[in-house]
Structure formats: C-alpha cells, structure tokens
Design a protein around this nucleic acid. Structure first.
Length: 600
RNA sequence: GGGCGCGUAGCCUAGCUUGGAUAGGGCACCGGGUUCCUAACCCGGCGGUCGAGGGUUCAAAUCCCUCCGCGCCCGCCA
C-alpha cells in the first residue's frame, strides 16, 4: 500500500492513537455494561493509562470498577478481558493482576503513524488554526548591555513556547517590551551623551584597550556600566545628573540621544539572539505608554480605584490588603509624589493594550518577578479589567561559582562568549571528522551545532528548576544534547540520500515492519502529536526536548539493529520508516529552534 | 518572619498537572562493538531509603500536613 495523505478524511490534527483509543474505550464500555457496571465513555477514557505498562500499549487499572461491582480486582480484570469484543484496531486483550492490557495491532499503528508523518510532512504533529490569538512576551531585557545566559533562558523558553503554540493552532505574536525607562538606561545615556574627554577617569580607564573595531553595539555601549555604577556610588553630583536624565524620561521628554542609544544596544542584543533563531514580531517601547497618554489614563482610573489611597506627600497608592500579596507593606505605590509613574503602572497600560488585541496574553517571567505578577493582577482588578495574563515562570540560572549572575559583580556568563566557545568547539569537532568539507560548510555546520547545543542545553530542563551554569555541561555534544539530535537527523538524511530517496514517495508495507526495534521506533514516533498538544497545554516546553531525545535514541537503536539500504523485501518499508523518523525529528527540532543538518 | 519554587544514584535530569504494575534518560566509571547505510553512535555492567516524618488510599515520587535544606521575592527600583 502506498502512503497517502490522510488529511482528506481527518484534518491535520491527526493522532494515530485516536481511533485505537476510541476502539478500546468502546470495548471497555461494552464489557463493563455486560458485567453490570454503568460506565460512560469519559469515565473509561479517564481511567485509561495511555502510556501503557509492562504488559501492553494501553493499560486499564480496574480497581475502582471492581469495587463498584463488588468483585476482587484480579477476577474482575479477567472478566473484563474476556468480555471485550474483538476489534480490528486492537491486537490483543489480556488480564494481568488487576490490570487489563491492550496491545495494538502493529500494522494498524505502523500505517497510521507513517501515513501521518510522511503524508502530513511539516504539519505532522500540528493542529489546524484554532482561531486563537496570543501574545507571547519574552526576553524584554533592559537594553543596557550584552545578554547573559540567565536572561537567555527567558528568550529560549519564550521562543520555544511561541513555536509550540503555533504548532498547536494558535496565532502567536511575539513581543519584546523594551524598557527604556530604567535607571540603567539613564546611566547609559548619561555617559554616552558626554564626549569621551569628559568621562570620569575611572570609567575611561575601564573601557580603554578593551574596545575592538566592529564589535557589537551592546558590548561597546554596555562596557562602561560597571565602572559608571561604581563611580556614581561616591559622586552625588553625578547621581543628580543621572536623576535628571531619568526625570526627563519619566516626564516624556527624554534627551535626544536616549532612544537611539537604547535602540543601538538593543540591535546588538538582537544579533546574538538571531544566531539562536530568535526573532520578534513586535517591539513595544515602555516610554511610548507615557507619551501617548495611556499611562495618564491608567493613573486616572487608579486614583478612582476602589482601594486608592493618597499618601501624605501626595503620592498615590493602592491598598492591597484584600489581595493577600506576600509583601511587608500592604500598599503599592502607583504614582510618585512628583506625579511620575512607576514600572507597574506602565505595565498596566501595556497589558490593557494587549487585552485589546489578543485573546490570550502570555508573559514569560523570571521567578524573581512573581510578586510583580501578583501585583499586576491586583492592579488590573483595581482598574476594572477582568482578564489576566498567563505567566510562564522560570527559575534563574546561577553563576558557575554559585550565586546570581551579575554584570556588576563580574559573575555573569555572556551569551556572546558562550556562542563563541560553543561554535569554536563545534568547528574543532567538524574538522576532526570531515576532511572533505570546504571552509564555508565547516563554518555552517559549526554554527548550527554550537547554537543548537546551547538552545537544547537550556530548554531540556523544566523551567521551574533552578540551574547552576557549568561550561562542560553547556558545551556537551554527546548524550542528551542538541548535537546528538542533529547527528541523528543527519544520519537519517544520509540513509535516504544513499538510497537515492531524498524526496519520496515512500511506499511501505506495514506487514514488513515487524522487528522489535522497528516497532519500538514507530511507537515513539506515534507519540509526537500527543506530546506537542501536552506541551502547548501545560507550557512544559521541556517535554518536547525529552521527546526529541527519545526519537533520536530509538532511531539509533533501530539503525544499529537492522540494515535499511542493504535489506531485501523490507527495504522500501524501512526507507519509509527512516523518512517518517526524519520528518518527526525535524519537526521536533523546528519546535526547539535547533537547526536541522542534512549532514555533519 | 511571610509568600512562592526546588530537593529523585558521585553529578545532571524525566516522571508530579490527571495516584496505578519492575522510577525512565544523560554524564562519569568498568567491559565490549567500526573489512558493512556517519562511532557526535550502539550493546552490556555499576549505581536509587524518590530530603525526613506522618496522613489519605486497595495503591503515593505523584495528593494532604509537619519539619529540614537550597533558591527567589517582600522599594515612591526595573
């Protein structure tokens, strides 16, 4: 039989397990009814263990049903097993202990999975447009210097989640909230607006000799920051100048250099993110909410909010005692005594704008912003907004020597340094293995391997797990790593290339794929749609990383266990299996932002 | 002090949302595998009181309570 595109009968939300599960649920429903126990399809479905157990693909623990039938579980399981009517989708039904185990008819799963993967191509594992629109705000790092790897966890989680949501049928707009109103941004403007001759000696000394022609503007502009910060500590007159810049920004009339400086630093940061495949649909400037009057409108409604309080010095606050915020004070100041706004206030304006445009508003935030998130929710309630953002929180990456990554303390590990190191190491590996390649190909592969290693290293761990950065782990190209996935993808590509079957079609005979490792591979592949849906629903982006490793792992076992090109009657079917693997692994790599490589 | 999160072999980690049979991987270590489709690979071995205690349940890594350790936060900063 020839692989056909099943999208005609079932739209691209295609899960090979659905018909099988439906048959099992129906069988169990009938069996239970026969045995005198009332069962709804939903209740049966709920009790099904779709990950299976040691005895089959799908397991059904019968304890609660046995209790209802007043039977011993072991006996009841046996009764159910013999009462389940035969179905072509289900291979075997058996009872073991208190469990009824179902084993699928392999050819059914093989056909459905290969047809899904090959027929749907890049749409395999995805769902059609569900009509939902979401904003995913991520990164949003202050444009004051190069990104460090702790910050990049935000970017990688956010970008990956955006990709997964798109695969799940949601229209996503990624947003970078550019904070040009912070003290650090004011410090950048303060120092760079002066001619170099007027810089404090300590600051000039700190940058001298480090500047290299052609370096990225975030590196160039951000370099004085630690020295500036130290200088300001004991120079009150300079502090007053910075405060002047900040005040002008807050009043909506920043110095002319302010925005261009922030923009140039941002441009430098974006160059590095682009190497990781991270780009943004929109940039939203915090100061614009002051300029366009929306912050003033927010302040207006906050002053009339149910729990608004006027402080003695004229500042406005919200009494948050009814919201149970975990803070010592039960007040949140929303307007300073000088009439200017604060970060939370502006964030309200931003969120009101988001709610006006998107059905779902998703914010990727470091765990240190949890209180901010709770405060935001309280203040949204105060201004009469019923909707709330969804927060994806992640724990920080700690410096190799422990503690927070800090630019000022010099403990930060910068993305640019990590990129350089990873790509250099990848280059070395490529050169060792491939004497046949030209310089351009070596470089292309090294870049893909180095950046892929970084993305995978960060995304493989659950977001709420605190991580200590270790160079040797981040630069690992073996085992559970990005390059291992890329290598497996390249290996699958290589097989297809050598078989001169790069493009398909991929006809197969499901009955020819009976080897243990072949069927194990099909089972892994068949889980792809379920995995994508799970990751989209729970924001457990790392589930896709674990899944991709499972695919690569089982593919390599298969590869070593059975020949493909040199096989006989199974050849066509095995080629199709390799093609399905390549498609699945490729789609998973796309979701992770790890570059595909056809050879390495 | 309060709130939130984390704790799974020497190290890293999955599973916890929705309780289910023998807790999956990776690194390191030990022993094997390349005249054969890419050895960034594969096979075998070693290694676990799932932080501790209690509770719920036929059944707990998973749910509840207490405690311990670690992290983050508690500003008219962002």
């Amino acid at each position: 039989m020839v692989a056909s595109n099943p999208s005609g009968s079932a739209p691209s939300s295609f899960d090979p397990w659905e018909p099988i599960l439906a048959a099992i649920v129906l069988g169990l429903e009938r069996a239970l009814t026969t045995l005198g126990v009332l069962a709804t399809a939903d209740a049966v479905r709920e009790g099904l263990d779709v990950e299976g157990g040691p005895e089959g693909d799908i397991a059904f623990p019968v304890h609660r049903w046995a209790a209802r039938a007043k039977q011993r579980p072991e006996e009841f399981a046996a009764q159910i097993a013999s009462a389940v009517p035969a179905s072509p989708d289900v291979g075997s039904v058996s009872a073991k202990g208190a469990y009824v185990n179902f084993t699928v008819e392999p050819s059914v799963l093989v056909s459905a999975t290969l047809e899904g993967a090959i027929g749907l191509g890049t749409r395999w594992g995805t769902r059609p447009d569900t009509g939902g629109e979401a904003s995913v705000e991520h990164t949003s790092a202050n444009p004051t210097g190069p990104l460090h790897i702790g910050r990049v966890r935000n970017s990688i989680i956010g970008d990956t989640f955006a990709r997964i949501l798109r695969a799940a049928g949601t229209k996503v707009t990624t947003q970078y909230y550019v904070d040009d109103m912070g003290r650090q941004a004011a410090q950048i403007t303060w120092i760079w607006a002066k001619p170099r001759s007027e810089w404090p000696d300590t600051v000039r000394a700190a940058v001298e000799g480090l500047e290299v022609p052609g370096e990225k503007p975030d590196q160039y502009r951000g370099r004085p920051y630690p020295a500036v910060s130290a200088y300001l500590k004991d120079h009150p007159e300079a502090r007053a100048e910075v405060a002047g810049v900040l005040g002008a920004v807050e009043r909506g009339s920043p110095p002319p250099e302010h925005r261009p400086l922030a923009q140039s630093v941002l441009d430098g940061m974006l160059v590095s993110l682009a190497r990781l495949g991270i780009r943004f649909d929109e940039f939203v400037w915090e100061s614009d909410f002051v300029k366009d009057g929306s912050v003033a409108r927010v302040l207006d409604s906050l002053r009339r909010a149910p729990h608004a309080v006027r402080e003695e010095n004229g500042a406005w606050a919200i009494d948050t005692s009814g919201y149970g915020l975990p803070k010592d004070s039960n007040r949140v100041v929303v307007e300073r005594s000088d009439g200017t706004s604060l970060y939370v206030t502006r964030d309200i304006a931003f969120h009101l704008q988001k709610f006006g445009r998107f059905a779902r508003v998703i914010d990727v935030l470091g765990a240190d912003h949890l209180l901010h998130a709770r405060t935001l929710e309280a203040l949204l309630a105060e201004v009469g907004e019923a909707r709330r953002p969804e927060f994806v929180l992640y724990a920080y990456i700690h410096a190799p020597e422990g503690g927070k990554m800090s630019t000022r303390a010099g403990t930060a590990v910068y993305l640019d340094d990590l990129l350089e190191e990873a790509v250099a190491r990848a280059r070395k590996e490529v050169l060792q293995r491939r004497e046949d390649l030209g310089a351009a190909d070596v470089e292309r592969i090294a870049e893909a391997v180095g950046t892929g290693a970084i993305r995978y290293h960060v995304i493989r761990v659950a977001p709420d797990k605190p991580v200590v950065f270790r160079w040797e782990d981040a630069l690992s190209f073996e085992g559970r790593s990005g390059p291992f996935l890329q290598y497996s993808y390249a290996r699958a590509s290589s097989v297809l290339r050598k078989a001169e079957r790069d493009a398909g079609p991929y006809p197969f005979d499901a009955a020819r794929l009976t080897d243990r490792e072949e069927l194990a591979l099909v089972r892994v592949l068949s889980r792809f749609p379920r995995t994508v849906a799970y990751a989209a629903r729970t924001a457990h982006v790392h589930a896709v990383a674990g899944y991709a490793h499972d695919v690569a792992d089982q593919f390599n076992r298969f590869y070593h266990a059975v020949p493909v090109i040199r096989s006989g009657a199974e050849r066509e079917s095995r080629i199709a299996l390799v093609a399905a693997t390549r498609q699945t692994l490729g789609n998973a790599l796309d979701l992770l932002g790890v570059p595909r490589l056809d050879s390495m």
